[in-house]
């Protein structure tokens, strides 16, 4: 490292003396070099918006919901109107999805049935969300003996096959929407409760929450800054997936004749009727089945999109 060795430096012609002026550490500049920082939710939303499949599903769901609300109001045929002389007629301009075995307009019935199916899906998911989050939150927050007892109870509940519960409750309370919802809610919240409890426990022990505590952050801030953002995404994703779960369960039970009872209808109930006519009048099964499947598909794809966008484990 003598001077001699340094002298044979890079000979670049256009170097001028004024380039050798000290600039010093420019804090401003070194921070500016970073990518603009975006918040967790902004980033998630941006990812979601970029996901074409998820956005398409969202649009489809919006369309289905709007149709369920407005189509029965605007469509000329009420869902329980019978055209005895035209039973089992296929799609025509007048009855675009055709008529069923009692001569009722399938297009009209699909949106009424959709109201029931979607209502069960949404209400069921919300109830199990509420119960699951509260139960899991309390269990995880208190820990110790409370947690032990509460989780034992969950473990027992998880062991009960939900279809059996639904059937027993509907035998007990009579078939229909209420008993269906009640039975579905009784068994469905356990998954979310476990998830939330796990998250709360993990966060309670996590180093960054510990650090926040040591730095004197208030519990309110810890909950709003760390707990909610970290569990929220999981809860949203879980709920998006549980809506189609409820719709599915309703469809199965109605298909078996244990769910929605006439004169009210649902997609599952319509599919059940349609299945009996399948051999000769397939349109009576295909349209309700299509409505059901497209809705399920949209919810599942949206759920996938949400998970890809918001799941902390999958990000990066």
């Amino acid at each position: 490292m003598t001077e001699q060795s340094t002298s044979q430096t890079i000979a670049v012609p256009e170097l001028s003396a004024d380039q050798f002026v000290r600039v010093g550490v420019d804090e401003q500049l070194s921070e500016q070099l970073q990518r603009p920082s975006i918040s967790y939710w902004q980033d998630g939303l941006r990812r979601l918006k970029k996901n074409r499949v998820a956005m398409l599903s969202l649009g489809l769901l919006a369309f289905i919901i709007l149709m369920c609300i407005f189509a029965p109001l605007l469509y000329p045929h009420p869902f329980d109107e019978q055209n005895i002389d035209m039973t089992n007629q296929g799609p025509t301009w007048q009855h675009i999805f055709g008529l069923d075995d009692l001569g009722r307009d399938i297009f009209a019935r699909i949106w009424i049935g959709g109201r029931v199916s979607l209502a069960i899906g949404v209400v069921g998911a919300l109830v199990s969300l509420l119960v699951g989050v509260l139960y899991g939150g309390i269990s995880g927050y208190f820990g110790g003996l409370v947690d032990d007892i509460m989780m034992r109870i969950v473990e027992i509940l998880v062991g009960i096959p939900y279809m059996v519960v639904v059937i027993i409750v509907s035998v007990f309370l009579g078939k229909g929407m209420t008993s269906l919802l009640l039975a579905l809610c009784m068994t469905s919240w356990t998954g979310l409760a476990r998830l939330v409890r796990g998250q709360v426990l993990q966060l309670k022990e996590s180093e960054y929450v510990m650090a926040a505590k040591v730095l004197g952050t208030s519990s309110y801030k810890i909950i709003t800054r760390h707990l909610i953002p970290n569990t929220m995404s999981l809860i949203i994703i879980n709920t998006t997936f549980s809506i189609p779960g409820f719709i599915f369960a309703e469809a199965f039970l109605s298909f078996l004749g244990m769910g929605i009872q006439p004169p009210l209808t649902s997609w599952g109930a319509m599919a059940s009727l349609g299945q009996q006519q399948m051999a000769y009048y397939p349109h009576e099964l295909i349209f309700p089945a299509l409505a059901l499947s497209v809705t399920m598909l949209a919810f599942n794809l949206l759920g996938d999109g949400l998970r890809d966008a918001f799941d902390p484990k999958l990000r990066q």
Binding site: Q19, F20, R22, V23, G24, V25, L29, S30
Partner: peptide, 14 residues
């Protein structure tokens, strides 16, 4: 390293 260097000169940024 220019942005963090305390000896940074104009040439270093170019």
């Amino acid at each position: 390293f220019a942005s963090r260097c305390q000896y940074c000169m104009k040439i270093c940024q170019q």
